[in-house]
């Protein structure tokens, strides 16, 4: 696809649903609804809130109830969307989310939205906070419908699913066959990109390192700096913890059940009956967060190296630095 066709192609995507893309909002970026490709900041580094928000909403109503009717009634809104411009790390993160939310007890809300969505990946260049290369998530092999690699005056487009294939064939006028010179250019671009990564984290054996460092003083040291504000979890593309509340209406009989993202850095995450808290202080909470992120639960790294938690931590707690301390490298 040539660079000039991008506008027209994006316009055409409307057929497949509302289009969302990375848009500049102040100093940050955010996936927002767009109507034209020029509204997007496609050279963005990362959005504050990852694309998981399309599937596991930041907050949402799950169902309504009425005591008089003794009824629970689900409230699901339906609608097709196209998420344009997702980076490889976020694609990997969604693969992890899928493993959790689409298991043998699938979450209907997530599942429906996932089925209704078209994911279009977009190539990126690392900044000083990206370490996806270390996590092995810097190149998306699957998990997308289409993936656009930006070359000099064209895009190399990879098709990742049947849905992607369908879009490509229905829009064949924008696409040209790949020439060997394109492959050469793609190879060079990728090779150059591999060298752009400056931040590295050794992940071999990290899971055991974390287990062995469970009693380490490192946790206390960083917990003293930490606010327990939860930002790190809320911006993390693989954090999936949520909390649930019931809200009653004025009639005291009807109401809704709502869920919203939660964070293990918050007091309530470990709280049970009688005020007992399994993670009473920031030391246990911070340690839990790093152990969870550093684990291979669901058979893949639970951190995709996007750098968000470091960037958006008000206290500047650096994810990679903490883990290097845990490994004894610093």
């Amino acid at each position: 696809m040539t660079s000039e066709s991008l506008d027209a192609f994006v316009n055409n995507l409307e057929t497949y649903g509302k289009i969302y893309g990375p848009v500049k909002t102040g100093e940050s970026c955010s996936f927002q609804e767009i109507s034209q490709s020029k509204e997007m900041a496609l050279n963005y580094s990362r959005t504050m809130i990852p694309p998981k928000k399309f599937f596991l909403k930041l907050k949402e109503r799950m169902f309504i109830f009425d005591e008089r009717e003794c009824e629970y009634e689900e409230t699901l809104e339906d609608g097709k969307i196209v998420v344009f411009g997702i980076h490889p790390c976020d694609i990997y993160a969604l693969k992890l989310m899928d493993k959790i939310y689409l298991d043998k007890n699938p979450d209907k809300y997530y599942q429906m939205r996932r089925e209704n969505a078209t994911l279009i990946g977009y190539s990126c260049h690392p900044d000083e906070y990206c370490f996806c290369q270390s996590q092995g998530t810097n190149y998306a092999v699957d998990g997308f419908d289409l993936f656009l690699h930006e070359l000099k005056d064209k895009f190399l487009v990879r098709i990742g699913s049947e849905k992607g294939n369908k879009i490509a064939s229905e829009n064949s006028k924008f696409f040209m066959d790949v020439e060997s010179s394109d492959i050469q250019e793609f190879r060079e671009a990728e090779g150059k990109r591999e060298k752009e990564f400056t931040l590295k984290l050794a992940i071999n054996g990290l899971t055991d390192m974390l287990a062995l460092s469970y009693e380490s003083d490192v946790w206390k040291e960083y917990a003293d700096k930490c606010f327990g504000c939860g930002s790190c979890n809320l911006v993390c593309p693989t954090c999936r913890c949520y909390d649930v509340v019931d809200n009653v209406n004025m009639d005291l009989k009807s109401g809704e059940r709502q869920r919203m993202l939660n964070s293990c850095m918050l007091k309530k995450h470990g709280l049970v009956y009688g005020g007992k808290n399994f993670r009473p202080t920031r030391v246990e909470r911070l340690r839990n967060r790093f152990n969870c992120k550093g684990s291979l639960r669901e058979d893949m790294m639970n951190c995709v190296g996007c750098g968000r938690c470091t960037v958006y931590c008000p206290s500047k707690i650096d994810y990679v630095e903490v883990l290097r301390r845990v490994r004894g490298e610093l």
Binding site: E27, I49, C229, G230, Y312, P314
Partner: peptide, 18 residues
């Protein structure tokens, strides 16, 4: 019993501090 930052994030407000 949690900080304002949580509400900022749930509303996707830009972080003024950061």
């Amino acid at each position: 019993d949690y900080p304002v930052c949580v509400e900022c994030k749930l509303n996707e407000y830009q972080c003024l501090l950061v």
